[in-house]
Structure formats: structure tokens, C-alpha cells
């Protein structure tokens, strides 16, 4: 297998990496770039724990090949807040509303939520449920996650973000 040298932008930083063609984006992020916030839950695209944004759209990074990300922009959980100390409104709402328990689904869940609010700033409850339909949580029963997303939507609206 030939190694490919690719360039991509990860959380705003230009990265140049040598990858084998069968390397997944998830492996690239976790094993090569040591961005371990993105989680491996199943490896088959069924649980959503590995969700990241590829050119702004949520993808299962376990089903995306690293070479597909060539010259594209990746945002992971490590890259959604604007500064090291401030949380993104969705992150803030997840903390305050008790939407986190074991936390393993949380990064993927937050990435799906961030994308939802960027494309639909004022979602209905059923739009929220649909948007996180590909993210399995085994701890919370989703109630507080949905509350958190609603709260974040209101906060963003209020702050004009």
C-alpha cells in the first residue's frame, strides 16, 4: 500500500500527514494527531461517537477515509470553542443541564448539535431528536441532551451569535 501525503485543516491548523489509503479519519485524528476527544464506539458508523465536522457537515469519522479529507477542513470537539477557556454555548449548556454522564457519546453528540444549530438556529424538539438520531447515548435517555440543545439555541439567539 502506497503512503499518501495529504494536507488538511484540523481545527484551524494546516496539517501535513502521511497516511496509508486504508487509514480512517478517526484513526488519523486519534492515533496520528493525538486528538483523542473524538471517540471510537463501534467502527461501523452506527453509534455516532466519532462524529466530526468535515467542511462543516457531520460525518462518522470511522467510516471516512483519511485521504477523503485531503484539502478539506475538519472540526473536532477540541476545535469548537473560540478560546481555550470559554465553552461553546452547546458545551456550556451540556454542562449546566446535566446532559453528560459517562461522557463517551458527548463529543459526537455535541458535534451533531453544533451542526444543527448552525443550519437551524431555532429547531423544534422533533428536529433536535432527528438531528441526534445517529448518536447513541446509553446513560441519559436523551432528555437532558435535548434540553441542553434547546438551551443553547436560546442562548445563541439571545447573544446574536
Amino acid at each position: 500500500m502506497n503512503t499518501h501525503v495529504i494536507e488538511l485543516i484540523v481545527n484551524g491548523d494546516l496539517r501535513e500527514v502521511a497516511v496509508r489509503p486504508n487509514l480512517t479519519l478517526l484513526q488519523l485524528l486519534r492515533d496520528h494527531l493525538r486528538l483523542t476527544g473524538t471517540k471510537h464506539g463501534c467502527g461501523t458508523g452506527d453509534c455516532g461517537a466519532c462524529t466530526v465536522l468535515l467542511d462543516g457537515r457531520p460525518v462518522n469519522s470511522c467510516l471516512t477515509l483519511a485521504v477523503e479529507a485531503r484539502n478539506r477542513t475538519i472540526t473536532t470537539i477540541e476545535g469548537i470553542s473560540t478560546s481555550g477557556t470559554t465553552l461553546h454555548p452547546v458545551q456550556q449548556a451540556f454542562v449546566e443541564k446535566g446532559a453528560v454522564q459517562c461522557g463517551y457519546c458527548t463529543p459526537g453528540m455535541i458535534m451533531s448539535s453544533v451542526h444543527l444549530l448552525r443550519t437551524n438556529p431555532d429547531p423544534t424538539e422533533s428536529e433536535i431528536r432527528h438531528a441526534i438520531g445517529g448518536n447513541i447515548c446509553r446513560c441519559t435517555g436523551y432528555t437532558k441532551i435535548i434540553e441542553a440543545i434547546e438551551t443553547a439555541a436560546r442562548a445563541k439567539k439571545g447573544s446574536g451569535q
Binding site: T36, G37, E78, S81, Q91, T106
Partner: peptide
């Protein structure tokens, strides 16, 4: 009191370390 979890900040920022990390 409805105190938020101690580890929530680490978990929402992806900095909480699991064994696999």
C-alpha cells in the same frame, strides 16, 4: 442542589481521558 458534574467540563471539551486515549 442541582450542582453540575465535576467532570462535565473535561467531557464536553474532549479532554477527559479514557483508557483508550
Amino acid at each position: 442542589k442541582r450542582v453540575p458534574r465535576l467532570d462535565a467540563h473535561a467531557k464536553v471539551t474532549g479532554t477527559a481521558r479514557y483508557t483508550g486515549d
